[in-house]
């Protein structure tokens, strides 16, 4: 699954940094019907978590109430240089991940 992460490239230590993530996923609600009238099975990202150098700093339970190709923006405090890793899993059990480096000055 394609995903994009945007974060301030070189934050200062202690700075509150904005983190934005956009994941390509249909977030199929399970309420839509196909051309012949059959219900299209629900498939949404159920959990999204963000780890900063291995420590979880943000987690979200999502549902069909979140728009397709989910976009989430939150904040985290820049502490050490390292990696910001995103993990997510959907109803079909498919796992996705994406990472971006964070350089703290």
């Amino acid at each position: 699954m394609a995903a994009r992460i945007q974060i301030s490239p070189r934050p200062k230590k202690g700075e509150v940094v904005e983190v934005r993530v956009l994941i390509q996923h249909p977030m199929e609600t399970g309420y839509r019907r196909d051309d012949v009238g059959h219900l299209i099975k629900r498939n949404v990202i159920t959990t999204l978590s963000c780890r900063y150098d291995g420590v979880e700093v943000f987690r979200a339970d999502l549902s069909s109430g979140i728009a397709a190709n989910p976009y989430v923006q939150f904040y985290t405090v820049a502490q050490t240089s390292g990696d910001l890793e995103f993990y997510w899993v959907d109803d079909e059990g498919k796992q996705g991940s994406e990472r971006t480096p964070i350089q703290v000055t």
């Binding site: 394609a2 994009r4 934005r20 190709n69 976009y71």
Partner: peptide, 12 residues
Amino acid sequence: DFANPGTLWLER
């Protein structure tokens, strides 16, 4: 340029 969902297709 980040949140525009079309950018996911641009990357591909």
